[in-house]
Design a protein around this nucleic acid. Structure first.
Lengths: 115, 115
DNA sequence: CACGTATATACTTTGTGGCGTATATTCACA
DNA sequence: TGTGAATATACGCCACAAAGTATATACGTG
């Protein structure tokens, strides 16, 4: 399992990531909050760790897992060209509507600029 | 196959999406540019279409596929809390380095504000 | 209306990932 | 040092998705 995309394709892993966004958690805490069996949690954490999504520190018998930003930033970067695509689309739509404003000056709400 | 995440987990599908970001393409054009067998292209396009990533119009025997923004915007929205997380981290790091600047006024390059 | 092109679909096979169950490891503490 | 808690790992099983091959469908053109 290589890519960022395959890692986050698994719902339980996404749940774990979302849980860790607020603060670090031990395996047991994750297990309880997400109601999933302990081996499942450990196995997914292993995958996440090896892919760089999380890191852990030892606290006696507990391991505290916390988020690392890099892999999700990579995903964010992948989205970039698509963002350009859809903002271009919004622009085109707005130009279209503005043209309609000129041709048919009716009771239309004032067009607001985006961003 | 339900979620946006599972859809984009497949490398060939990501390749198709990246190809369509510039402009719409027929199945044959995709087939040639990505060097993948025609049934493979058609099957992935089916998945992408049913998940709302692409739409097609008929041009005689050809079908022209183009991108639709919604599903990837959904992914973008999912990333939101994580963006807050890592920008908080950059802030903390900067505060830390700024503090070091005060305590050890050495030959450090001038700290630049981000964003 | 026969033929070639473009695309979609059906069927089978194969590889892989996730889960459950059991067990190993590590640590604190009595 | 033995016992229980917390976590990790090993193994077997099953579901599912991707790919390949073959075939069907739709359309334009001679």
């Amino acid at each position: 399992m290589a890519s960022v995309f395959e890692i986050i394709a698994e719902p339980n892993r996404r749940a774990i990531l979302s849980l860790l966004v607020s603060s670090q958690q031990s395996v047991g805490e994750i297990e309880r909050q997400l109601r999933m069996p302990q081996p499942t949690v450990s196995k997914h954490l292993r995958v996440l760790r090896e892919a760089g999504f999380v890191e852990s520190t030892v606290d006696a018998q507990r391991r505290l897992y916390r988020l690392r930003p890099e892999p999700l930033q990579e995903l964010d970067a992948w989205l970039d060209p698509f963002r350009r695509f859809w903002s271009a689309h919004v622009d085109a739509l707005e130009r279209h509507l503005d043209r309609m404003d000129q041709t048919t000056p009716l009771k239309r709400k004032t067009r607001k600029k985006h961003r």
